[in-house]
Design a protein around this nucleic acid. Structure first.
Length: 582
DNA sequence: TGCCCTGGCGCC
DNA sequence: AAAGGGCGCCAGGGCA
């Protein structure tokens, strides 16, 4: 079953007649019933079947689990992120929900007022013209309550939170219905809400992480663990060699200006201490410096203290922030889960008897551009498993490298060197695809917002930007203004592609989650990063999981882009170590 | 001492 | 090989 964006309308009559008593004693499964829930502290809470009476529940988790078993529920939650971890610890899994705060965030962005608070209290206050309470500070690790917290500053002032939840839901549905393409926004809200469920489940299950493998790697590359603030042996040695290469004058390789000054003393002027700048120099310090940078990165970002903080019981448990990026990509709070270095993937191993099904959408963004723009010739190119190779064959004399530069320049707004002429070739061959992103760039330069396929909306530029780009006073101001305009144009150019790719990936994730619940209930989605997903499952379930992955990709393509000829391959490989994927 | 900025670099 | 877009995180250092 895919996400049913129209389920509400069809089910409305069937549940308007039921009430909580019916739910409690019910013997018949009710399809699509919506139940709003607010936690009230000490594990208790109140619930209301929409249009029905309110029920006070002593053990909210147990009650929700019971309803979830009996009926097909869409839970209406003020904040999945706050409620669901507690439910998961109590062993309760929710099928689907409508997250009021996430929906509010999407709608506020759509309505071009992205900086207003999105919590339930604020959303309710706006419906009454009352002052809006600010969003609460996100909870950090270690502060997690063992039971539900009733009030984290988002309770509507002067209203029953359950009344507020129901009122805000109605308000959101009205606002969605008033848009030009309500089905798209409904899908986006459903996918975002499902994403919130998946994110909490991922943190709950954790990514399988072999501490012993990680430790062995650290010791091999860096030496024995040292006290905080003391460089491990290999780094200390490299630092000495760097200073020696600069005539013995001490250089702090952790301090870029110190490196720049050291080279300057030897008559080598460099604009920065970036690795790719240093790589070009001919100097005895170059080799140890580059090695130091690489190892130091591992030590600082994913060394022993990272292991202490983030890996527990053989699981890496990051906290995902759903909708944390304006484009709809996820962010993380701590743990740097979305920046796992490739070299560390070898520490990600399945449990005995289990496997990792790793799925990666290949060249998602150019394919998304093909589907967005409806460029038929471009769609033909995307028939191939390797889009860049067929693009090269079609328009770049078989030169895959140049084809890729041209494509990336179109999507990111590249201006350097080769980009111009290559983009011209692309434009001539695929006018619709290139025009799509150039239109988005022009919108940004003129201060207008752009939207993803499903309606995720770019933030309007700041007041400062508007001042900078209007009423030029002098040559300098004009130059700065034009530069600011071009920069914002690059942002909106990229936004339409990146955000639509996020639409696709989120819908795929939501669909996969539903598929797995049916065909491989033991399987756990344990990682999701922009365009890839990892499922941890018993070996016997691997085939079913792989099939679900492919199916999810197809379903997502149809849900998001309709009948597009563009293919979105999501290649799944079954491995026991993440390092062996692909 | 804590806050904020910068440079640098990991991922997509 | 880097460059264009998006992030998070860390160390260093300036400043209150």
């Amino acid at each position: 079953m895919v996400i049913r964006v129209t389920a509400e309308s069809r089910c409305r009559t069937s549940y308007s007649r039921v009430n909580c008593r019916y739910l409690s004693v019910g013997w018949r499964r009710i399809a699509g019933v919506r139940i709003a829930v607010v936690p009230e502290g000490d594990g208790a809470g109140r619930a209301r079947v929409l249009d029905g009476p309110t029920e006070a529940v002593g053990d909210l988790a147990a009650w929700m689990g019971e309803q979830q078993r009996r009926h097909d529920v869409r839970w209406v939650l003020p904040s999945t992120e706050e409620l669901y971890p507690t439910l998961l610890r109590a062993g309760v899994r929710l099928d689907r929900c409508h997250d009021l705060a996430l929906a509010e965030g999407i709608l506020l962005a759509f309505e071009e007022r992205p900086h207003r608070p999105r919590n339930l209290g604020a959303a309710w206050a706006r419906t009454r013209g009352l002052p809006e309470p600010a969003d609460p500070r996100p909870q950090t690790r270690g502060e997690q309550p063992t039971l539900f917290e009733a009030d984290r500053g988002t309770t509507p002032v002067g209203a029953d939170p359950l009344d507020a939840a129901v009122a805000v839901l109605a308000d959101q549905e009205r606002r969605i219905a008033a848009t030009a393409q309500p089905d798209r926004l409904r899908l986006l809200v459903a996918a975002e809400s499902a994403g919130a469920l998946a994110a909490a489940e991922m943190s709950h299950h954790g990514l399988p992480w072999r501490t012993d493998v990680h430790l062995a790697m650290l010791e091999d590359l860096l030496g024995q663990r040292t006290a905080p603030g003391v460089r491990p042996a290999k780094l200390a040695d490299l630092a000495d060699r760097i200073s020696a290469a600069f005539a013995g004058r001490p250089v702090n390789p952790d301090h870029p200006p110190s490196i720049v000054r050291a080279f300057a003393r030897e008559g080598v002027e460099i604009p920065s201490a970036r690795a790719w700048v240093i790589k070009e120099l001919d100097h005895p310090a170059v080799a140890p410096l580059l090695e130091y940078k690489e190892l130091s990165r591992l030590y600082v970002a994913h060394g022993w203290s990272w292991l202490d903080s983030w890996v527990d019981g053989g699981r890496f448990r990051p906290e995902y922030v759903v909708g944390g990026v304006v484009s709809g990509r996820w962010a993380t709070r701590g743990g740097a889960a979305l920046q796992l270095p490739r070299t560390l993937r070898t520490a990600v191993r399945s449990d005995p008897g289990w496997v990792l099904v790793c799925a990666d959408a290949s060249q998602l963004e150019p394919r998304v551009l093909g589907a967005l723009s409806g460029d038929r010739r471009f769609a033909e190119v995307s028939e191939s498993a390797d889009l860049y190779t067929s693009l090269a064959a079609d328009a770049f004399d078989g030169d895959r490298g140049r084809a890729k530069i041209a494509m990336l320049s179109a999507m990111y707004g590249g201006t350097s060197g080769e980009a111009g002429p290559l983009l011209a070739v692309l434009r001539k061959r695929f006018p619709q695809a290139v025009e799509y992103v150039e239109q988005a760039a022009r919108a940004g330069e003129e201060g207008r917002v752009v939207r993803s396929r499903l309606g995720r909306t770019s933030p309007p530029p700041s007041e400062a930007w508007r001042e900078l780009t209007s009423d030029y006073d002098g040559e300098q101001a004009e130059k700065r203004g034009r530069q600011a305009a071009r920069e914002w144009g690059r942002f909106t150019r990229n936004f339409v592609v990146q955000a639509s790719a996020a639409d696709w990936a989120l819908t795929m994730l939501a669909t996969l989650r539903r598929n797995l619940a049916v065909s491989a209930p033991e399987a756990q989605i344990v990682f999701f990063q922009h365009d890839e997903v990892i499922v941890h499952c018993p070996e016997a379930a691997a085939e079913a999981v792989s099939a679900d992955v492919s199916k999810a990709a197809e379903q997502s393509s149809t849900l998001v882009f309709g009948a597009t000829p563009v293919r979105f391959p999501l290649e799944a490989t079954t491995v026991t170590s993440y390092a062996d994927a692909k």
